[in-house]
Structures are given as structure tokens and as C-alpha cells.
Amino acid sequence: MTDSRNNKGAQGHLHPLTQIVREIVDSFVAMGFEVADGPEVESEHYNFDVLNVPKDHPSRDMQDTFWLKPSEDGSPNHSTSGVGLKGVSQTVLRTHTSSVQARYMETQKPPFKIIVPGKVFRCEATDATHEAQFHQIEGLVVGEGISLSHLQYTLNEFFKRLYGTQATIRFRPSFFPFVEPGVEVDVSCVKCSGKGCGMCKQTGFIEVMGAGMVHPNVLTASGIDPQKYRGFAFGMGVDRLVMLKYGIDDIRYLYSGDLRLVNQF
């Protein structure tokens, strides 16, 4: 669909990240999902504790997570004893959009289906394929009798909307503290449709997201009875999809404010 204003010289350009986020969010909204969001500055409580990430898990280390100085005198807020005061002291830049899960679950009663786009942060040196900031989209469905079959159906529907009716997905074993079972989701290669090519390293599939059944500890921590309800969650990196789709070779261009990138879209 082209808008006529595109034909005028004065038309500006929408950032490719916005475009892909819209495509993805629109697909889920069409399936009845609600868009939700949450803060980028997040408490240790929502980013880690309620997501069943152990107190001493390495992902909480300063090598992986940006910690913030919330007090005026600049005193460190990262205590190794980790007293996770909710939304107050132990403050991080959220490392995933999964932090919105508990925020939503605490205030809403199941059943629900949400999709959460947002910027996230990891403390890692930047290069062509790594940025300290990037975008994720998280999905969460909680209701009675939800199973991995429902997750697979939902993701199949989504990828068919995104990549066309020939797209298929497959699950592989994986591990994330906030889901059990946990799976890695591969989608049939958009370039060769599963036959094998350079883009998919001859495997016919591309790894696109992590997913699984919401861990009962996560439901319990958010006040939802895991005996009654089950849910599934999934999360995907948006930047990589953008880079794959358009053949962008350096992730840093996406956050440089550079029209040499943006004006190609």
C-alpha cells in the first residue's frame, strides 16, 4: 500500500525499526492482542526477581546490566545482597521487555493477550553486530488451558502474516528462567523458504525468538494462580530482523541519527 504523499518530493522517511515494529505489532493486534508498555528505567524487582531469575544470576552482574545511580549523592544502588525493593532502590536499564510481564499481570485479570514493543539495554561493548541499546517485542498470553500448541499456532499465524503463507516455524529446546518449558523458535528462511542458502547457513531456518510456557513462579509472583491459569510468552529482537531484511551490515547505524540510513526507507 502506497500513500500518494510518497510521490511528492517533500515526503519524509519512517525509521526502519518503526516500520518493522508496526508490521509486527499490527499482526498481533489483528489477532486481538493489546499493545502494552513499561518504563525503560526499571527496578530489579520487575526486571529480574519476579521473572524467576536467581538472586545471584550472572545476568545481574555489572558486566551485563546497566545499573543506575538513583540517589542524589551518587551512592551505588547495586547491593550484592539484593534487597529487591519494588520500583524503588535497585534500579537498572531494563534488559528485556519481559519486565512488562509482571507489571501488566499485577493489574489485569486473565485472560489476556498483550504485545509489548520497546527499547532495552545490555552492558556490552558495541561493534557491528552488538549495541548497548536495541529493540525487543514481547508477547504474553495467559488464560485457562493454554499450551505450547497455542503458542505454536499463534507464532505460525504471525510469521505467515509477516513473511507470507509459506512460512513455517519449528521449536527447539532452550532455557530462559521465566519459562518452563522453554523453546527456541526458528522460522523457515525468508530467502530460500527452507531449502538452504547462505543467509540461513544451509539450515533452511533462522533463529528468531525465545519462547515458552510462563513459569509458575512468574505467575505466582504476579498474583495469578498457576493451578488455574497457564500462559505462554515470547520475545524477539527487532534489530536483527531489520538487518536481515534489508541487509544492513552495522547495527550502530540504527541509533546514529544518520539520514544516510533512514532516507533509504
Binding site: 489477532m31 486481538g32 485472560p111 493477550k113 493454554i146 499456532y153 521449536f171 527447539r172 529446546p173
Partner: peptide
């Protein structure tokens, strides 16, 4: 085999 799992449409939620 997770790959053997079949699709099931989401239940019709009151949402």
C-alpha cells in the same frame, strides 16, 4: 520432540 507439537487455535477469550 517439540517439533512434533501440532497447532491449536487460541481459545475464544473474553478479552
Amino acid at each position: 520432540g517439540f517439533y512434533k507439537i501440532t497447532d491449536a487455535p487460541l481459545p475464544d477469550f473474553a478479552f
